[in-house]
Amino acid sequence: MSPAPGLQIALDTFDLPSALGPLQKAAPHVDVIECGTILVLAEGFHAVRAVRALFPDKEILADVRIAEAGSKIARMAFEAGASLVSCVAGASMATIEQVCAGAAEFDGEVQVELADEWYDADRARAWRQAGVQHVIVKRSRDREAAGNLSWKPEDLGRVDELAGMGFTVTITGGVTPTDLPAFAGHPVGIVIAGRSIVAAADPAAAAAELKRAIEEVWP
Rank of each mutant, 00 (worst) to 15 (best):
V188I: 08
G173N: 11
A115L: 09
I38N: 04
I33D: 07
W218V: 00
F167D: 02
S150Q: 12
A208C: 10
M76Q: 13
E109D: 15
G21Y: 10
V30T: 03
R143V: 13
L20C: 05
A67G: 15
Q111E: 15
A207V: 12
I197H: 02
A213R: 09
I190S: 00
E68T: 11
A27G: 07
E144A: 14
K58V: 10
K25T: 06
V169E: 00
D57F: 07
E43Q: 15
G108S: 10
D120W: 01
E34Q: 12
K152R: 14
R128K: 15
R143D: 07
L210E: 02
L54T: 03
T168L: 00
G108K: 06
L20I: 06
Q24P: 00
A193N: 07
A199F: 12
A208F: 04
A163P: 01
G194M: 04
A50T: 14
F14P: 04
K25W: 06
V99G: 09
L16G: 08
F55I: 13
A26Q: 04
T172A: 15
K25C: 11
K138W: 02
G44P: 07
P203R: 14
A53M: 04
V175P: 03
R139G: 06
T176V: 14
L41M: 12
A115V: 05
I38D: 11
L11Q: 06
V110K: 05
